[in-house]
Design a protein around this nucleic acid. Structure first.
Lengths: 338, 338
DNA sequence: GTTAGCACTCGTAATGAGTGAGTGCTAATA
DNA sequence: TATTAGCACTCACTCATTACGAGTGCTAAC
């Protein structure tokens, strides 16, 4: 792969990304200053095709980059774009504006990035796998009902309204809760499973059946529910490669199958920003999509992930630039906040 | 509108709903036992066309119902379908299964109904406009932070982690909270706005500026956030009338514009189940969609709404039957639960 | 009032010629 | 030996033409 070939591959990707049309040798000779004629470029393109970096939709058409071509482009030829002033302002404003809820920021990130790049963007805070039990507290509500709170040491609260079993009082409930608190305090939240609670039931030598519904509520409120924020599907299907019914249906299925979005965000990453191009994606319904994924970390712990889903013909440099910028600023902001 | 015309209109709607193809006179003569020849039916159909109940896509095509035709069908010709055993089982199971979270039920309703009817279904619990303040409570978390809870008399809880201002303690915070509780107890939650809190600040003759962030958190956690659950867009765009790019984009826009979905659910209803056909919808982006909307009430209060969005060519009887069934069972279930 | 018969309409699918962008090869050139 | 000009060839795409058929609307007979 000599220097000229690299420059031609770069030019093909560049041109195809912006035009969505197969790129011909003449186009490159005209618009990219390589100092050689279209015939020379034609020869080089043929070689690039033989080596698997370029593809031809049909004999008499121009070339488009193959998965391998994009991969080479992303790994060796491309630079993350610098943001424009406008982009920079919009993102910093968004990150700085929401002083409280991190969830909100993730939601807005998905929206803003998708609107800037015409892609489908999804974001989610990481499920905290380690979540330490702090205490259970019952609060009064009215004669028959009480509010059951579970508080973790990280400051997360889940609440459920429970009926006070006939013959009990809220103080009695709290007494029991205190014993349970003592039992669970400092343990990981997963310890509060059915088994443990059954064991505890034996331990206190008391029939807990009247409270069983409370434990059901408890377990339910502890169940980790990771929210995936998504936005921009409307922008994505405006891209020329999705102008047909099947592709659009695929996108909509992807959007409604939250499981798949979850799994996209959940898969492990070997670097802070990773790119998966087309069929590099394990799921075959993502075979003609590319995904750029960024992890957000504070103090070594992953606190959220964002993925940009677009056509393989994606502005990789720009998307990576955006994600990099957000990573830097969001992590900085969160570190200061803690 | 004589009886035969009614039967012909009924047949046209029936046939078009299931076939999605313009219906010809011969089809009706063959498949619907009217006892007259296609020529007679042809004459009647011409009249129905003149009177605005039927339309012709082009001169040599069959007829399709007009908005007016559907309206007449829904108002005068149609009966809500009885559910099949399978449908009934699936719905009762769903309603009975989730013993706790009503939110979950609404989410599942949207999913199940859309999957049964190949429509886009949206559901939301009603924003409780009246929401009565109960009390504020601070709970310990660690040295620097506390958990601020706001509890309503209906048993809703919102929580935020707040920093304890330097020089204060959690007891001090609770003391202040108790005065605020006294001040706000039994009032509508909207009373806790900036104005009132400023007035209260004067009243207690104490500088509350160190607590300002807490009040910001408080207000934010009180902000009503109505969640709209949706499902089935993928099924809807599988319908033949949406097999083109523009229509699909419209659907996706509708899905991503949560505001519009909100407004669909929010608009007042004059009866428990209402039907809006095509251009009867105020929003013009809904002009070729029909919406069947049901309100769920417990004790005279509206507690949620569900809307089924489909093509004008919709199985009105079936959808209404489903919604009616759910209304009855869900309201029954909730009444018992309270 | 109803029906059979028939000419007429018009959307749709199939066919085929024409067009042009782009290639691949060859021979000339530096 | 690397580059370039020239040219035949390929193939998707467009557009007009044709054929087909479902369905109507009218007329005349029952």
């Amino acid at each position: 792969m000599n220097d000229r070939k690299k420059r031609i591959l770069w030019a093909v990707v560049q041109d195809y990304v912006s035009s969505a049309e197969p790129v011909g040798s003449r186009t490159i000779a005209k618009n990219y200053d390589l100092g050689v004629s279209s015939a020379t470029i034609r020869n080089e393109m043929q070689d690039l095709g033989d080596e698997g970096y370029l593809e031809q939709p049909h004999t008499s058409a121009g070339r488009i980059p193959s998965i391998k071509g994009y991969r080479f482009y992303v790994d060796c030829l491309m630079e993350p774009s610098r943001l424009t002033g406008e982009e920079e302002e919009r993102l910093t404003h968004m990150i700085a504006d929401q002083t409280t809820k991190v969830d909100e920021i993730f939601r807005n990130m998905a929206r803003v990035v998708s609107s800037l790049t015409q892609t489908l963007s999804v974001a989610a805070r990481q499920t905290r796998r380690s979540c330490t039990f702090n205490y259970i507290r019952f609060l009064p509500l009215d004669g028959q009902r009480a509010i059951l709170l579970v508080v973790t040491q990280e400051g997360r609260v889940s609440n459920t309204v429970v009926n006070i079993p006939p013959g009990s009082s809220i103080d009695e409930l709290q007494l029991l809760a205190d014993r349970l608190n003592h039992f669970l305090h400092g343990k990981d939240i997963s310890a509060a499973d059915e088994q443990t609670i059954l064991a505890f039931q034996k331990d206190v030598e008391r029939d807990l059946t009247p409270f069983s519904r409370i434990f059901v509520s408890l377990r339910r409120s502890l169940a980790p529910k990771q929210k995936v924020y998504s936005g921009g599907a409307a922008g994505l299907i405006r891209q020329p490669e999705f102008q047909n019914v099947e592709k659009m249906q695929d996108i909509l299925n992807l959007l409604e199958e939250r499981d798949l979005l979850h799994s996209i965000l959940d898969t492990a990453m070997d670097r802070p920003i990773a790119v998966r191009i087309g069929s590099e994606n394990p799921d075959k319904s993502l075979a003609d999509l590319s995904i750029v994924k960024a992890q957000f970390q504070v103090g070594g712990e992953v606190i959220g992930t964002m993925a940009v889903i677009g056509p393989t013909r994606m502005e990789y440099g720009r998307v990576i630039g955006l994600l990099y910028f957000m990573q830097k600023h969001l992590e900085h902001m969160l570190k200061n906040k803690e």
